[in-house]
Amino acid sequence: MLQRFLDPAVLAGLSSLDLIAKTVVDGFISGLHKSPDFGFSQEFAEYRAYNPGDDLRHVDWNVFARTERMYLKRYRGETNCQVNVLLDTSGSMKYGSRGVEKLEYAKFLAASVLYLAHLQRDAAGLVVFDDQVRNFVQPSTRQGQMHRLLHGVEEAQAGKRTDLVPPFAHLMDFLRRRGMVVVISDFWEAPEKVIEMVSPLKFRGNEVVLFHLLDPEEIHPKLRHPVMFEDLETGETMEVTPDYAAHEYRDKMRTHLEDIESRAKGAGLDYFLVDTGRPLDAALREYLALRTGRL
């Protein structure tokens, strides 16, 4: 029943992004009841044996009273990390063949990730970019942060061309703590250039997740007769025959996807291809299952 509401076209009908994020996240968390702590935290809350030099304020004296052994109590708040979502709003994100544009889908996904991080009490931040940084919400756990984030997501408008250099340079300046960087983009760029731009984030100890958003028509275009295509970013036009789209284009696209995935894995990045024709929670569920396996 819930799955019906998670169809991208149905979600697009909901007015509030807050409601969308709750619908998506609560939906799949209730499906993951055995592991309520699964989330985006890199460190788990635990007891650790006391070592000389440790702060005695963190010793759990109740445990010492029962066991006469000293253990340090690790608070959950200390395990929180920074989660930064980078949302691509370039012109190509405005494309949508089945009612829901890629940008809209990306907004749902960003809102869901941010809401999930908020539940984990992680400090969540947002960077909206196209060829420049259009909006930036500093990572924080303060009161009202979630509201600011969702507002930032909601305000995002399709812009011009994609350029990963300015947002990542901007982000490098602000990333003080280790954390997680979630990049949501259609990555219409050469794979080597994408990885070249993204991989420096990894060197600072961040976990980098790439959500590659593509419309089904971009992956498998179906043409019945020759069509004049217009590039949404450059405005360039070109006539395309059905025969070309059915064969050569698909081959090139498949190569591109394989290339970008292998390069991402080679650079230690998490890569996940999101088909905007699929339900949103299914994409999240698949990703988290993948992460669980790794953790």
């Binding site: 405005k94 259609d186 971009e218 004049m228 295509f229 217009e230 970013e233 070109m238 006539e239």
Partner: peptide, 15 residues
Amino acid sequence: PRPFPSLMFFERREQ
């Protein structure tokens, strides 16, 4: 003309 995200994989020679 029909909008398309990118003409990266289309080649002019196909005309």
